[in-house]
Each structure stands twice: as structure tokens, then as C-alpha cells.
Design a protein around this nucleic acid. Structure first.
Length: 417
DNA sequence: GTTGTACCGGGG
DNA sequence: CCCGGTACAA
């Protein structure tokens, strides 16, 4: 590369802070693309640097940019005009760090969990070295809820497009930033829209025209329901479900239109701290059948997912993995994704006895995703240490509100007793 | 409480 | 014809 390219590479990295973090603790490439969050944009870095990609997410008042090397996580924030003062910037960068540690739940030692799951489960044991660093994100409940209402009967790539459409059409751009792999064009960054923006009745028709299908009505109705019952503190109210028990929180989520057991469980696991919850979709069901001895057929016919089967799968897998079962499920789920299929959960059933083959066919010389070019002169040497306190709330911090009156909107569960 | 079916749109 | 489901009516 030319000196100019090297220089620009260095300059572009100069705004990054760093955090020591081994890949066994976090793999951005896996975690940000495995269908937990649908809003991170990814850029290939044209200039060779020791990170191959940059990920970006618009978060309220800033855009967070991430890069990763085998030993460090690099992060920086970009703020809209007017640029904050130097001291103000320092303060807000500190907020970003707190957010990062919260979002990636870095106080949880993933290596420990992998060890535990490997001890409990031979299937996991054969998989873990090829799928390092897959952890549960701690997402915003509102965004998570709407994203997973979109997920019904759907695939990751379309869900991603739909979520992006929600942002571009219902939330003004916070700022524009050049594409790192093509600095000529600027990319707009939109925060996720608030409930009030999606609650208007006309939203549903527009979403239909944007290709949301029947999910258009679910989204508008859910937003409306939320705003009608909790007004401007809707997001805080959802956040408050973190303090409820799994059963209480699930009961609340199931009231929303378009939210069934599976979607509710996704939200419980991914944004409401219910680490033991396993959302059972058809994928997970198949995994349970292939690898954990659940019955896949009845009288020669494929069994359909019913509440009963759902519970069976759930009970079985929680029994196998323990109290972080939801986290473990995410590793298995990711390994089974088509996009990771070249080295994922094989189904080599030629196993004589199910569940008794000590992962041996797993030497498929897996090329690492995060395999990267090593730059002769590292653009940036990891710097200073960082504060260790991890806040349990998000950026501007949302105060807890009680709101004893839970207006029972009624729906499921009304007709009986 | 269970079971069956329509549903919007994209992809194989 | 399949799909990372849910609402609604038997």
C-alpha cells in the first residue's frame, strides 16, 4: 500500500478507543450477524488494517462504530453537529463505553459458560471451538419487540431490510457519514423510531406498501396499544419488565398484537435479561430432534409446533444447558444458520448411536471468519485501561416508573375461567 | 385446552 | 413449496 493509504488508515483509526477483549469473549462477526439485532451496518475495510470490518449502529444521539482484532475491541462515537467540546466529547465517549459493556454484557465470562456447556453437552463440545465468542446481546426492549414481530415467517435478510425501512421512514436521520470502503458517498444514520411514531393508524397502510405484509398491522397495533396504555413512558415501561419474573413479563408481552410465545421469548431472552429462556422456532425444534432425541415424527408425519411440543423442547434443552440455556441456544442456533453452514452443525447422522459420538468429525479445518490481514505497523496500539463499573441502564438513563395501573388491554386469556 | 388454516412476500 | 409464527375459528 502507498504511504498515503497507510497514513489515511492510521488517521481513520485514530479516533478509536480500545478495550482488551479476546475472541473467546466476543466475536462481532458472529454476534452482530446471527439474527439477534438487525440494525448494525457492516463495512469491509478497503485499507488493510488489522480489523477487516467496521460495524455501525445509530443509537439515540450518536453513531457507534466498532472494529475488532483478535485481542481488542475498538470503538468510537460520532456525534451530529455541532460537535461537542473536547471535554464534552470525553464525557460522551465514556457513556459509549458504559453502553458497550452493558450491550455486550461483558461482565459475563463467556469462556466459563462455554466450559460449563461443554461439560454438560457433547454436541456443544464438538461445536464450541468453531463458534467462539457467541454471546447474548442486551438490547433495547422496544426495538427488540418490533424487530421480532417482523420475524414471523421470515428470514434474516428480509427482517433486516424491514427494520431499516422502519428507521428511514419513521425517524429522521441523525447525521451522514462517509462509507469507509467508499468515502465518496455518505450514508444516513437513523435512530430506531419511538413508539409514538408507529402508533398512528395510517402507519399500517404505509408499511404494507413497503412490503411488510400482514406484519404491518401487528406493528401499528402494538405501538398503538403501548402508547395508549403507557403514553410517553412506554419504552421505560418495557424496560421495567426486566425486574419482573419471566412469567410475569411474558404475560405482558403476549398481550401485544403479533406477539406469540416465540416472539415473546425472543424479547425475554434478548432484552429482558431472562437468560434461561429458549425461543423455540422451527430451527431450534429441528436441532432438538436431530441432536437431543426429541420425536420428529408421529405416525410417519412431521410433528407440528404446538404449545405442548414447545414446552417439551424447552424443558429438554434447559435440562441440558442449565440456567444460561438461552445463551447456549444462541450458539447452536448460529451454528445452524445457512450463512454459517460451511462449518456449522453437521447432520452427519451416520452416527451409530445418537448422542454418543464424541465430536470427532469436527476437524474440518475451519477457516476463521475473523481471519484478517496483519498490518506491518498496527494503526493503533491499544491504549489505557478503562473503568470497570458497568451501569445497568442505558445512555441518558431511564428512570424507573412504577405505574401500578396496568390497563388490561385484553385479548388472549379473556374468554376463559 | 387442542388442532387446523389463512396470511404478505421473498427465495429455492 | 418452504419459511426464524400468529390470530382466529372450529
Amino acid at each position: 500500500m502507498t504511504f498515503g493509504q497507510l497514513l489515511s488508515s492510521i488517521m481513520s483509526m485514530s479516533a478509536f478507543h480500545s478495550l482488551p477483549l479476546p475472541l473467546v469473549q466476543l466475536s462481532l462477526d458472529a454476534v452482530l450477524k446471527c439474527g439477534q439485532s438487525f440494525r448494525w451496518s457492516i463495512f469491509s475495510l478497503a485499507q488493510p488494517s488489522d480489523a477487516s470490518h467496521e460495524y455501525r449502529l445509530c443509537l439515540r444521539d450518536r453513531v457507534v462504530c466498532l472494529r475488532q482484532t483478535p485481542t481488542h475491541l475498538f470503538y468510537r462515537s460520532i456525534y451530529p453537529e455541532p460537535q461537542p467540546s473536547e471535554t464534552q466529547t470525553r464525557l460522551r465517549d465514556a457513556e459509549t463505553l458504559i453502553w458497550l459493556k452493558d450491550y455486550f454484557q461483558l461482565d459475563i465470562d463467556l469462556a466459563n459458560l462455554y466450559q460449563e456447556w461443554g461439560n454438560r453437552d457433547k454436541v456443544f463440545l464438538g461445536l464450541r471451538e468453531r463458534f467462539l465468542g457467541i454471546r447474548m446481546l442486551r438490547q433495547d426492549p422496544w426495538e427488540n419487540l418490533i424487530s421480532f414481530i417482523c420475524s414471523s415467517n421470515n428470514n434474516i435478510s428480509r427482517i433486516t431490510k424491514m427494520v431499516q425501512n422502519l428507521c428511514t421512514h419513521y425517524s429522521p436521520a441523525l447525521l451522514h457519514i462517509p462509507d469507509p470502503s467508499c468515502p465518496e458517498n455518505c450514508v444516513p444514520y437513523h435512530p430506531f423510531p419511538p413508539p409514538s411514531a408507529l402508533a398512528q393508524p395510517e402507519v399500517s397502510a404505509k408499511l404494507r406498501s413497503l412490503g411488510f405484509g400482514y406484519r404491518a398491522d401487528f406493528i401499528q397495533k402494538t405501538a398503538q396499544m403501548l402508547v395508549e396504555t403507557h403514553g410517553s413512558s412506554s419504552e421505560e415501561w418495557l424496560m421495567g419488565l426486566r425486574k419482573e419474573t419471566t412469567e410475569q413479563a411474558r404475560e405482558e408481552l403476549l398481550k401485544f398484537m403479533g406477539v406469540g410465545r416465540k416472539v415473546a421469548d425472543c424479547v425475554l431472552l434478548m432484552s429482558l435479561d431472562k437468560k434461561e429462556v429458549i425461543p423455540v422456532d422451527t430451527h431450534v425444534h429441528q436441532i432438538a430432534i436431530k441432536h437431543y432425541g426429541l420425536k420428529g415424527t408421529l405416525n410417519g408425519k412431521k410433528v407440528n409446533m404446538t404449545p405442548k411440543i414447545y414446552e417439551e423442547v424447552n424443558t429438554k434443552l434447559v435440562g441440558v444447558w442449565g440456567d444460561y440455556a438461552g445463551w447456549a441456544h444462541s450458539v447452536l442456533f448460529t451454528s445452524d444458520l445457512k450463512s454459517f453452514s460451511s462449518y456449522g452443525l453437521q447432520t452427519p447422522s451416520p452416527t451409530p448411536t445418537p448422542s454418543l459420538s464424541p465430536a470427532k468429525a469436527s476437524n474440518k479445518r475451519s477457516r476463521k471468519e475473523y481471519e484478517s490481514i496483519i498490518l506491518p505497523t498496527p494503526p493503533l496500539t491499544p491504549q489505557k485501561e478503562y473503568p470497570s463499573a458497568v451501569s445497568d441502564t442505558l445512555l441518558p438513563d431511564m428512570s424507573e416508573q412504577s405505574l401500578a395501573d396496568r390497563v388490561k388491554k385484553r385479548r388472549r386469556g379473556v374468554a376463559q375461567t
